[in-house]
Amino acid sequence: MNEGEAMTAFFKKPKRYMPLRQREPKIDAPQGLMTKCPSCKYMHYTKQLNENHKVCDCGYHFPLQAQERVDMLVDEGSFERFAGPSVKANPLDFPDYEEKLTKDRERTGIEEAVVCGKATIDGLPLVVCVMDARFRMGSMGAYVGEAIASAVRNATSLGLPVVLFTASGGARMQEGMVSLMQMANTSIALKEHDEAGLLYIAYLTHPTTGGVSASFAMLGDLNVAEPGALIGFAGRRIIEQTIREKLPENFQTAEFLLESGQLDAVIHREQMRSFLKRMIELHDGGVRHV
């Protein structure tokens, strides 16, 4: 600010708005050291929270990045990431879409909204796919669809079980019908895997909605979810507008779906690894049983 500007500022009428008081006392902490639970507002030491599987004592499950999930789940050093598929980058020539993808790539450090690969849990081999909601809200376009379909096809030819962690707002708008067709693409790959007699576990995390919930998220031999995850086909607001009534607070949560018979179980993140290990064991390694 130069002198002239400072003078004008000085003579300007003082603002008549009342300053908004902050709801919480500000805690002076370096970025990343503390993490606040959005549910119970408790301030965690980030390091402690991470040691606690990123789950608050109140039961709130913090969202996980794809790589965090992989690290938490599989044997150390066992993850072999599959190469990403060759897909049309911008099939509709949608304005500004490629710039948005580049930005998300820089921000998240991942190539797209899903990471797939081969790994072991306590020595048991499996194919694991993990969606990451930070990237374009985990929405499914050609990349996500084809990456999952081809990971499933790999599992079929290797004779391995598939565990797929969903986290997605649904279809990728900017890819229009190409996105919708990924629902068919992934379902077809899963049907082939199913016909080969192999185990598929759909593991639903927050959020799992729209086209993803209406395709591979619901096609597991077992469909399980993390506590509190939002799972549904249509959006809450659309339903409220359609039926003109308020929906219950817990509508479309994992617990609600469990009650209405849509899920096999709701699994606390602490049990994720032991649950999956036990399920794969109970299915004879999830490989074909003749």
Partner: peptide
Amino acid sequence: AYPGKAAEERGQSEAIARNLFEMAT
């Protein structure tokens, strides 16, 4: 597909997903 409360409770997602899956083969 109808966006309603009952439709969600009775598995709109699952019903559609199941059809994609079965139609595949």
